[in-house]
Amino acid sequence: MGDELVFVEKKVFPDGEIYVRVPSKPSGVAIVVSSTHPPQERRLLELLLTVEALSSYAQGSVIAVVPYLAYARQDKRFLEGEPISIKVVLKALEAAGASGLLAVDVHQPRVLSEWLSIPSKNVLPFEDIAGYLYGKVKNAVVLAPDMGALERARRVAELIGADFDYLVKERDRVTGEVRVQPKSLEVNGRDVVIVDDIISTGKTIALAAKSALAQGASSVTAVCTHAVMVQGALDLLYYSGVREVVATDTVPSPVSKISVAPSVVRGLRELLEDMI
């Protein structure tokens, strides 16, 4: 049998419990594609149940493709008594029977090798993002929200032929006003592109946009991989002067315009090669 696309049957029982069923038996490698955006708990459980069903049903490996991997930001114990949430998620996927995992732009990629013993792949959609931006910005500077995310800004900047820098917060000692501005580059007269992995509340980018425009930036574009966008985030960004907010389609939203399919396909091929 050749490649086959199958939609998993899902329903919710009157007591709220979830039911899933794979309607046909895969003849080879089974690939489950499921993003775990809000409501995260329900989507995670659906994914785990589907992986478990396939692990005892499929004739080959079961690979989970999770474009947005929930709970990835809780990757260590920030305070005593906290769980490492992403560890729980990854261990649960492995325990359910996943033979491999592909995710897109995980907050801290090290968690995959740290907590999984199965093959894994973290896909970075820089080419997809750069393809969307190319030709839309002029004399651009690509900014990371902090030094830790500078590599993301560098990769996108190199692909579109732009400069790159990262943002730092500064507080005026007299007025107490907080400003977010590039560490070293000038933005006057330039198109600014702020690139991040996740936009949730949008507060940091909104503050950065106001500061950049106050410093003479021609425009500000906010780009992210995962548009989680809590209520009011998008309005906040536009109100702060951001010209365009754009994201990949790992999470459905009004601004999810960039397909990660090309990067996911390439990553999946590499993962399958690693598993042979």
Results as ranks from 00 to 15, higher is better:
Asp165Leu: 03
Ala217Gln: 08
Ser55Tyr: 04
Arg190Thr: 01
Pro254Val: 12
Tyr132Val: 04
Ala157Pro: 00
Glu80Tyr: 13
Pro39Cys: 01
Gln231Glu: 15
Glu52Thr: 05
Arg190His: 02
Pro39Leu: 08
Ile118Cys: 07
Ala144Glu: 05
Val33Asp: 05
Leu44Asp: 04
Ala130Met: 04
Thr221Leu: 07
Gly60Leu: 09
Leu69Asp: 05
Val142Ser: 00
Lys10Pro: 05
Asp15Phe: 06
Asp3Ile: 13
Thr175Arg: 08
Leu272His: 04
Ile31Arg: 12
Glu244Thr: 13
Ala130Asp: 01
Val195Cys: 00
Ile86Cys: 11
Ala96Gln: 08
Leu54Ile: 06
Thr201Ile: 04
Val141Cys: 00
Ser113Gln: 07
Gly97Ser: 11
Ala162Val: 02
Gly176Met: 08
Gly216Val: 02
Arg179Met: 12
Lys91Asp: 07
Tyr239Asn: 15
Leu234Phe: 06
Val228His: 09
Leu234Gln: 04
Gly97Tyr: 05
Val62Gln: 07
Ile129Ala: 03
Asp249Pro: 03
Val88His: 08
Ile160Gly: 00
Ala98Leu: 10
Ser256Leu: 10
Leu237Val: 10
Asp128Val: 09
Arg179Cys: 09
Leu237Ile: 14
Leu5Ile: 14
Ala140Asp: 01
Glu186Lys: 11
Tyr68Pro: 05
Asn139Leu: 01
Phe13Val: 06
Gly135Thr: 07
Gly16Val: 14
Ala98Asp: 04
Ile84Ala: 08
Pro145Met: 10
Glu52Trp: 12
Thr175Asp: 07
Glu170Phe: 02
Asn122Thr: 02
Pro23Glu: 12
Val6Phe: 04
Leu47Ile: 09
Gln59Arg: 15
Leu5Trp: 04
Pro83Asn: 13
Ala64Tyr: 10
Ser99Asn: 14
Lys10Trp: 03
